[in-house]
Design a protein around this nucleic acid. Sequence first.
DNA 1: TATACCCTAG
DNA 2: CTAGGGTATA
Lengths: 362, 362
Amino acid sequence: MLEATLNEAATLKRLLDAVKELVQDANFECNEGGINLQAMDNSHVALVAVKLHADGFALYRCDRPIPLGVNLGSLTKVLKCAKDDDKCTLKANDDADVLSLKYEAHRGDRIAEYDMKLMDIDADTLGIPDTDYDARVTMTAAEFTRIVRDLSSLGESVRIEVSKEGVRFASDGEAAQGNILLKQTDAARERYENYGKDDEGDDDDDDDVVEVKQEDDEKPKKVKKEKVKKEEGVEDEDEEMASGDDEAEFKAKSEDEEEEVSESEKKKRKRPAASSSNSKAKKKAKKAVDDSAEGGGGGVHIEMTQHVSLTFSLKYLVNFSKSASLSDTVQLMLKNEVPLLVSYTFGQGYIRYYLAPKIGDD
Amino acid sequence: MLEATLNEAATLKRLLDAVKELVQDANFECNEGGINLQAMDNSHVALVAVKLHADGFALYRCDRPIPLGVNLGSLTKVLKCAKDDDKCTLKANDDADVLSLKYEAHRGDRIAEYDMKLMDIDADTLGIPDTDYDARVTMTAAEFTRIVRDLSSLGESVRIEVSKEGVRFASDGEAAQGNILLKQTDAARERYENYGKDDEGDDDDDDDVVEVKQEDDEKPKKVKKEKVKKEEGVEDEDEEMASGDDEAEFKAKSEDEEEEVSESEKKKRKRPAASSSNSKAKKKAKKAVDDSAEGGGGGVHIEMTQHVSLTFSLKYLVNFSKSASLSDTVQLMLKNEVPLLVSYTFGQGYIRYYLAPKIGDD
DNA sequence: TATACCCTAG
DNA sequence: CTAGGGTATA
């Protein structure tokens, strides 16, 4: 028996927007910790992982783990019937053959109820590698969206290169080639210095992190050659990655293993959504965050242990960037030869995309 | 070697918006005076001429004339990657096989560079007839846009009729016929009395111009039967106009003749952008100009030596009217049997369209 | 498949 | 009022 109430149906709508193009069907794994979704796209090049913390719900109850096999197209249709600010209650029985959605206007004078058929989906629970990334790039979600959309009009793929100088996105196309360099700025560094840190749990206190300051390119301040650690809350089995023809692929485990809620996850859930990324508080947060910079808050914050350069399909990145509606900020985690992690964290949880690099590039 | 910097990439973007649908490829003729573009549409019914004055650029350097053969589709794509307020620098070597565009955010934390392949384009430099038009109609660009868009939903073509009464746009369609009469108003006359005059050069001092005042239809004030002169800054060879099946056509010269910077052009460039049509100053200019009229500044200003009535394809006019983003004001120059000139003048230069009339109409 | 127009959302 | 997404068309 699952019963979960979201104060804003918009959260779900926005989540689905980005995911539904990647995968058609997916299991919403519900347990006491919240709701998780993990799925690969059909070509096994991209993986999406969504987490909605139980305590992000106005009401949450899940007696025992239930996988809800959802056709995302159907769910999108049903969610379209909700107004953005409707209170939204999900209900499913243990046999999980139907998902009931109830939309209530906050004034209480309107109640809509929908029942959606569920399906059995082979649990392709993926092992998400627990990677020690070499670079973490934090920037505004809007800027990331803009960049990948711009470049996608030129070419198929983008090379992302992180150096002390900044991060460079470069694409080659028939008609033109282009590259965008985002420099690290003090404003961005201050803005994002602690972004995502309290999300991560144990290590990654600021001393371990390599701070690359823009102005003294040759002697970055706090270089301690530890890796930029991340992803403690995720199982790290099946680290090997099968290489496809052109792009590496994720390999499905096809086992019914629940992603258990780790200690760090629990810690994360205690965080009082302080990271300025709640959808409601968006404008205000953005404004507050841009104390020194105006309009969009340019510049990036970079933490890195070594120079990385990888090439990715822009089609996927454009898709990922749709999640900008969920958070003002996006983080890119990179390491040569391994999948890129694109992470949007919002008050209620996160959505993370993993994208295998194109091979034979850098 | 060309190097030219625009303070706002938006200028180029807007220029391209209107031109790219008319022609696919065109030469940007760069010389010390600035950048010129001249091209016919595929059917040779319309001709577009763009001028960007050298001193309208924040920085301009062109050692010797270079024709940049540009695929406008590609350039549009590349320009899409610029934010409207980006500083935009164009660079090309003398061999002109690549055009480099650099976009810099004004904050400086974002630099994008694009290289676009250039191509050799047969220089179809057109002889633009130096026409003594019989009527000059000055109106707000927005009103013109509105009119041609309205009428284009009714029919294929519009008859434009200029009389002392005003200017009438009339279209016949299957379902309905409609016509719009814009009367000359004192407000419009005052507003536009000197519009374009300092752009034009030698003659056209106000005494030579036929002022048609609306209120005393039967005895217009200063009728001196000189022609309304125009287009001194343009070569006037190949005046003959070949007539096509339905519409007259422009005839290409197919010679590599540079449009040289005439004396009147040079005078024009000294003009301190006083004509209230800089893209930046748009809202303010419009407001200042609307002292007596509200919302868009209705009414037209008409100068004419004789009644004209011509019919044009609305499709083209709708296309031309996209240039309204460049200037608040548009001028129509008409003379029976010869192409209409639709002219938008903005701080940086102008864009002019010539459209052959439909034959067998009036 | 790419482009243009329309519509909706911010 | 502008921009982005979707749809429809070429």
